[in-house]
Structures are given as C-alpha cells and as structure tokens.
C-alpha cells in the first residue's frame, strides 16, 4: 500500500470550462448539461415571470398593457427561450424518473432516450415558438 501511495499517479479532474467545446458529449450528456442550464435560466427568470403574471392578472388595464409589452420582439424572444427551458427541463425530468426505475440505462438505450428528449423538446418548442409569434 505504501509503495502505491508513493508513486505519482495520473489524476483525472473535472472538465475545465475552457475544455468544454473539445469534448464530444453523447446525446444523454447533452440532455444532462442542458437540464442544468435550463433549470438555472428559469431560476434567474423567476422574477420576470412573476412580473408578467402580475400584469396579466391584476386588472383589465394591466392585462392590456401586458399585451402591448408582448408585442416587443425582444420579449417574444425571451419567452421563446423560457418555453424551450421549461420543455427541456420537463422532458429531461421525465427521463430522470425512468432512469430511477432502471429503464433506459444501457449504452444504446441511453443514447436513444437522450435523442428522444432532444427531439421531443425541439418539436414542442417549435409549436410554442409559433404560438408566441402568433402563427396560430
């Protein structure tokens, strides 16, 4: 044991932030990091969502003012981002529950579950984006 501990052995640390783009994450890994990113984004956007909720619900007048604010391209863009964040977090969360039941943990299944989450998120997000920009 003492011989082993004397030898200098390679250490594998966490990925540093500057190395992120060099790593080719599998689909499940992309889902995982985006789960975190989407959660953090919604945490930071919480006061904004509450402000919009406040305007939407306080009075007829504030509701009308909110509708004007929602005409802004920037606000629409932020809402599109939040819609994506919510949907990704939801679908990735559902995948988490299946993982808890030991479903989809094998290498190939894990990859297809990862892709399924990304595709479902993208599909529902596109619908939400069209709705936000008034396509239907």
């Amino acid at each position: 044991m003492s011989e082993l501990s004397k030898k200098s052995r390679p250490q594998f640390r966490n990925i540093h932030i500057t190395q992120i783009l060099q790593y080719r994450l599998p689909a499940a890994g992309v889902v995982s990091i985006l789960h975190r990113v989407s959660g953090a984004a919604m945490f930071l956007a919480l006061p904004l969502v509450l402000l919009l909720f406040d305007w939407s619900i306080t009075s007829e007048l504030s509701y009308a003012q909110l509708m004007e604010v929602l005409d802004s391209f920037l606000v629409k863009l932020i809402l599109c981002g939040l819609a994506w964040a919510f949907l990704h977090h939801l679908f990735a969360g559902i995948r988490h529950l299946f993982s808890d039941l030991h479903i989809g943990l094998a290498k190939e299944q894990s990859a297809s579950w990862g892709r399924a989450v990304l595709i479902a998120t993208l599909g529902c997000s596109v619908l939400a984006w069209l709705k936000i920009f008034g396509a239907f």
Partner: peptide
C-alpha cells in the same frame, strides 16, 4: 429550485 441550484 433550492435543491437544484444548491447542487450547481
């Protein structure tokens, strides 16, 4: 959100 952000 507390559990998630604290994990981060």
């Amino acid at each position: 959100a507390w559990v998630g952000i604290r994990d981060i």
